[in-house]
Computed example of a mutant assay.
Amino acid sequence: MLVGCSLNNAFAFCPSRHTSYMEAGNHTEESQFLLLGLSEHPDLQPLLFGAFLSMYLVTVLGNLLIILAVSSDPHLHTPMYFFLSNLSFVDICFVSTTVPKVLVNLQAQSKDISYTGCLTQVYFFMIFAVMDGFLLTVMAYDRFVAICHPLHYMVIMNPRLCGLLVLMSWFIIFLVALVHILLLRRLTFCIGTKIPHFFCELAQMIMVACSDTLVNKIFLFVATALLGVFPLTGILLSYSRIALSLMRTSSAGGKYKAFSTCGSHLSAVSLYYGTSLGVYLSSDGTHSPQRSSAASVMYTVVTPMLNPFIYSLRNKDVKGALGRLLSRGAPCP
């Protein structure tokens, strides 16, 4: 029973119910959490290291190629590919928030992460995870305008609006994440607290705190509802309008063209929200921490890795731009 932890310090020693409590005082920055990871079996550590390293390299390389292809090809200087390059940038930052620390811990056979490092990881993880959803929502609106209002597409989706949508998304997410961190800093954590995950995640941090977390839980619920439900509602509304527009279209060629432009985005949306839902369901108290962590790998690592393949394999423009980019970089025979 974690009673008696001081609320005035980030850490307190909480060994047992009958042991006196000692405040950590000015040693907060030296205190550490223990990340339990995916498995404690020593034989699996090299396999996990190889898997995470491979997925990380593929993710960074694939998304970097998308950014270079969009920036180097004038034919791709359109709103849709502007948002796609932003999505690729966010995916690179997303995996870079968690995977490098996982690789370091696996290589060093260590589970430690500092208090400051943990809060930093929580902050940036929230930013890039939510930004993924915001960008997918903006891209759905872009497809709605392109299909339902094609004659006014370039007027509506002008560069100023595109930039404003992205900047507003960043501003909202930075602000909400900052409030989460400020609330998290109010909590007290016991020295040597074990986090049943392979990275510091907000909900897990609230669960392992040894002080009152009611305010944190309320704000987490409200922020999740606003930043999760509203973007998904925007995507559903956009595609419902697209579906109604296509039903009124008699041309089979027009329907096929519209479907081909939306197919990649629908695949990315399904992957993002499907894995997110899997993490939510696996986080239920009836599931083990290992199962929850395994589900989080799909959400935090696999999804950003697959996005470049989804947009390049199903999109002739991106495939053409990638081919021209790689041919320019190839040495002359």
Rank of each mutant, 00 (worst) to 15 (best):
L2E: 12
G4C: 11
G4I: 04
N8L: 14
A10L: 09
F11N: 00
C14N: 03
P15L: 13
P15K: 11
S16M: 04
R17S: 13
T19L: 07
T19V: 11
M22T: 14
G25M: 06
N26V: 07
E30Y: 09
L36P: 00
L38R: 02
S39W: 08
L44I: 12
L53W: 05
S54G: 10
L57S: 10
V58K: 02
T59N: 08
L61R: 08
N63F: 03
L68D: 01
H75F: 06
H77F: 01
P79L: 12
M80D: 13
M80T: 10
Y81F: 15
Y81V: 04
F83T: 01
L84Y: 01
S85E: 11
L87N: 06
V90N: 12
C93F: 11
F94L: 10
S96G: 10
V99G: 06
P100G: 05
K101M: 13
V102G: 01
L103G: 09
N105M: 00
N105T: 00
L106I: 07
D112T: 07
I113C: 11
Y115N: 03
T116S: 14
C118H: 04
Y123A: 06
F125D: 07
I127P: 06
F128G: 03
G133V: 03
G133Y: 04
T137I: 00
T137A: 15
A140H: 05
R143H: 09
F144P: 00
V145P: 03
C148M: 06
L151S: 13
L151Y: 09
L151R: 13
Y153V: 00
M154Q: 15
V155Q: 15
P159V: 12
P159D: 12
C162L: 11
C162K: 08
C162M: 14
F171V: 10
F171T: 09
I172N: 03
I172K: 02
I173N: 13
I173K: 05
V176Y: 07
L182G: 00
L184W: 06
F189W: 12
K194Q: 11
P196Q: 14
F199Q: 13
F199A: 13
E201Q: 13
I206R: 05
L214D: 09
L214V: 12
L214Q: 09
V215D: 09
N216Y: 03
K217C: 07
I218C: 06
L220Q: 14
A225H: 04
G228T: 05
V229L: 12
L232Q: 10
T233H: 09
Y239K: 06
S240N: 13
L244Q: 12
L246Y: 02
R248H: 15
S251I: 03
S251A: 02
G253F: 04
G253R: 10
K255Y: 02
A258Q: 08
A258D: 05
F259D: 07
S260K: 15
T261H: 12
S267H: 04
V269D: 07
L271W: 11
Y273E: 06
G274L: 02
G274M: 01
V279F: 08
R291E: 07
R291N: 10
S292W: 09
P304Q: 02
M305D: 01
S312D: 01
R314H: 13
R324D: 08
L326Y: 01
L326A: 10
S327T: 08
R328H: 15
G329H: 08
